[in-house]
């Protein structure tokens, strides 16, 4: 039997088309979005302000469409890593990161990744598929701590702008007043620099952008991030410079610190030159080595020196606290292990 199509993850426009096709009153679409994105129900039957006939009609073709997690790993620091099934023996990860004044969920946008960055665990499992809007938003809606969430970051498995349409739809549903109604400044999408995606995202949403930088120099970046061969750093920076950012919106740059590779004085100077005139923040990250990588993390002393050197040059720079190290928080490790288990069972 063919699985029913999920309603959860549909935009208002899509729901209007569905109710039109089903011959239901036009206002039904708005009623459905209220049930999907604002209330705490899990079935079409519970949409009690819809007529019984409407619920019956919808239930014939659709279901609500939520999928619970299958495992959770809990870190001593409070971080939790959830593993969600993504169909056909595939898995995705979401990391819940509680802090004193906020709680962030790091969501995945693809199963695996095609980008092949040298330092990334997700890339090691290859690309296994795109996540639908339903699967992206399910990570948020099916999170046991969803009421605590204040921020969503698209920094889990996959490159969000290689799944642009579903990521844009997800951001739309998260931020529209008929959707989850989150403030756009509470949503950040992180990219390695797919320029057409950056442009469309900046045009169509108001959410924050984060760019994985990892070197201010094209030739060095190219050696650890193959995307640089297609969309170069000057092109990425041009797309950012061409944008009117306004007062609320922010661009930040993620910078993993690799020992002896991107942590020198010349990198500080390179970053200052590259980011000149852009109001931004740099987040420095410790590298958590993955099996087989030739890269190592810079030590804490170097990372602190690097932060101070950038700050002295007027660039807001923070060191991101490593969270969930005891539960393989580096994205991709948990799902790769689970995938391995499934594959060894198959043999």
């Amino acid at each position: 039997m063919q699985a029913k199509e999920p309603l959860f993850g549909k935009t208002l426009d899509e729901l209007q088309e569905i109710v039109r096709q089903e011959g239901l009153p036009r206002f039904t679409a708005k009623q459905i979005t209220d049930w999907l994105y604002k209330k705490d129900i899990t079935s079409i039957e519970e949409m009690t302000n819809l007529s019984k006939e409407a619920r019956q009609k919808l239930s014939e073709k659709y279901d609500f469409g939520l999928t619970p997690h299958i495992t959770v790993s809990k870190s001593a620091d409070g971080t939790k890593k959830y593993l969600f099934p993504a169909g056909q023996g595939k898995f995705i990860e979401s990391a819940y990161i509680p802090e004193k004044d906020r709680a962030t969920l790091c969501v995945s946008s693809q199963v695996g990744c095609k980008m092949g960055c040298l330092f990334c665990a997700t890339g090691k499992q290859g690309f296994q598929g795109q996540l639908s809007t339903n699967q992206i938003l399910n990570q948020i809606r099916s999170l046991p701590e969803r009421e605590m969430l204040s921020n969503i970051v698209f920094m889990g498995m996959g490159e969000p702008f290689d799944n642009l349409e579903d990521v844009l739809k997800s951001v739309n549903i998260l931020t529209e007043n008929w959707g989850f109604e989150m403030a756009p400044r509470r949503v950040t999408v992180s990219t390695i620099g797919i320029v057409p995606g950056i442009k469309k995202f900046l045009e169509e949403t108001k959410a924050h952008l984060a760019v994985s930088l990892h070197s201010p120099f094209e030739e060095e970046r190219k050696k650890i991030m193959p995307i640089e061969n297609v969309y170069s750093l000057p092109q990425v920076m041009q797309a950012i410079r061409d944008t009117e950012w306004g007062r609320q919106r922010r661009v930040s740059f993620e910078y993993i610190m690799f020992k002896g590779y991107n942590d020198r004085e010349r990198h500080v100077k390179g970053l200052v030159k590259l980011l000149h005139g852009i109001k931004c923040r740099i987040n420095l990250l410790r590298f958590h080595p993955i099996p087989g990588t030739p890269l190592q993390s810079s030590d804490d002393q170097t990372i602190e020196w690097f932060r101070d050197a950038l700050k002295q040059k007027g660039i807001t720079t923070t060191i991101r606290t490593s969270r969930g190290q005891d539960i393989e928080a580096a994205c991709g490790l948990l799902s790769t292990r689970e995938l391995g288990k499934k594959e060894s069972t198959k043999k």
Binding site: K223, I224, G292, P294
Partner: peptide, 20 residues
């Protein structure tokens, strides 16, 4: 790339283009 690095090829000598 992993095989080449394992065989002692410096990662700086590996130039990759990915299809996406």
């Amino acid at each position: 790339r992993d095989i080449l690095v394992d065989k002692g090829i410096p990662f700086g000598n590996i130039v990759a283009e990915i299809y996406f």
